[in-house]
């Protein structure tokens, strides 16, 4: 499976890259804002996306909408510091399938992605 990492923090992008430990999952792109993510999404067509919410240019919720327009079967895991329920619900309504709150551990990341892959 191909995955794209979207976060405006280089530290978080690098952390996800280091932590990701799932067989047959390869990071094909990483983007630092929503506009870049949409552009990379079109050219790489990943199956999964980890998505930050608070980003410059185009935020995560707007980016989820655009990705859903392009490829509705994409599995999106939101990884955000925004810990309130209504933000998580809004992200799920826009098309995300999972929500992981920052700060996160290696186990939490891999479990959340596994769940995303197996969830029908």
């Amino acid at each position: 499976m191909k995955i794209m990492v979207v976060d405006d923090s280089n530290i978080i992008r690098r952390q996800i890259t280091r932590f990701l430990n799932l067989e047959n999952v390869d990071i094909v792109a990483s983007a630092e804002n929503g506009l870049e993510a949409v552009s990379y999404f079109r050219s790489n067509q990943p199956d999964m996306v980890t998505m930050d919410l608070t980003m410059p240019e185009l935020d995560g919720l707007g980016c989820i909408e655009k990705i859903m327009d392009i490829k509705p079967e994409t599995r999106i895991l939101v990884i955000s510091a925004l810990a309130d329920k209504s933000t998580a619900i809004e992200a799920l309504k826009k098309g995300a399938q999972g929500f992981l709150c920052k700060p996160f551990s290696e186990i939490e990341l891999n479990n959340a992605l596994k769940e995303l892959m197996t969830d029908e």
């Binding site: 923090s9 608070t54 410059p56 925004l82 810990a83 309130d84 709150c101």
Partner: peptide
Amino acid sequence: EIANTISGNARKELGSEFTISI
């Protein structure tokens, strides 16, 4: 990222109207 994480996590108690910038 630390400032963002601590501020964002605060929304669990303070609600989504507690709006944070990048």
